[in-house]
């Protein structure tokens, strides 16, 4: 909640978030690079954890804390464990995996670089310096209520010309609407209509069919995995 609020103010904290982004991305890319190059399989899995965690951080940085949380739960919590199981079950050498043939490596590097160049060109060409605008206020719901004036935050009181010793005051919708968004958030009874709620709304209304499909897919994958891996 507070995080979401802070992120909403990201425009003002641009420098700080940029620094955060830089650190996150460096860590992420370094780990990703190590992951695809290291010889040790277990190390690779651990590097993957870091990458996933870093990308969770990126999600949070972007204001999608729900996705970030999911990422950590599902990926780091479940998928990585699956991987580790896989590693152990296949009895892959826990130490050195393999020495990748050099022509293969150069081929991969070539394709990867090519891919990156094309994408980077396209991205830069298309989006240039488009900013992500965090400035749009999230919708704030307000339920009229009666509060003690001394409980009101100072900015609210000042904005509504209510003295601290006014005692019980009734806040009306009309009064609320005159306030600046920053101030509105601090009014008791105001509820920031946040990200998570929106996501939930979306998933369970607009995207209900895909959601169900994914559920079925997971079930099918579960059964399929069992069938495939089952000993004859």
């Amino acid at each position: 909640m507070t995080e979401a609020f802070l992120l909403a103010q990201a425009v003002e904290f641009d420098v700080a978030s940029n620094i955060a982004f830089a650190i996150i991305s460096i860590v992420m890319l370094y780990s990703a690079f190590k992951m695809v190059t290291t010889g040790n399989v277990v190390h690779a899995a651990l590097y993957l954890v870091i990458v996933l965690a870093a990308s969770a951080a990126v999600f949070i940085l972007l204001g999608s804390d729900f996705v970030g949380a999911t990422q950590i739960l599902v990926y780091i919590g479940a998928i990585i464990v699956l991987f580790l199981f896989g590693i152990m079950l296949t009895k892959a050498q826990l130490g050195d995996d393999d020495s990748v043939a050099s022509e293969k490596r150069s081929m991969g590097a070539l394709v990867g670089t090519l891919l990156f160049v094309v994408m980077a060109f396209a991205l830069v060409d298309t989006f240039g310096n488009d900013e992500i605008n965090f400035g749009d206020p999230e919708p704030i719901a307000f339920t009229p209520s009666t509060v003690d004036a001394s409980d009101l935050p100072t900015p609210v009181r000042e904005a509504l010309f209510i003295s601290a010793d006014a005692g019980e005051v009734e806040l009306t919708q009309a009064q609320f609407d005159t306030l600046e968004p920053e101030v509105q958030r601090r009014v008791p009874g105001a509820e920031v209509f946040g990200n998570n709620k929106q996501i939930a709304d979306a998933i369970f209304s607009q995207y209900i069919i895909p959601f169900e499909a994914v559920s079925v897919l997971l079930l099918a994958a579960l059964i399929g995995a069992i069938v495939v891996a089952r000993k004859e």
Binding site: L110, V118, F121, A122, D125
Partner: peptide, 11 residues
Amino acid sequence: AAATVLAGIFI
């Protein structure tokens, strides 16, 4: 590689 090249041409 082929897909990339095609994409590049497209872009």
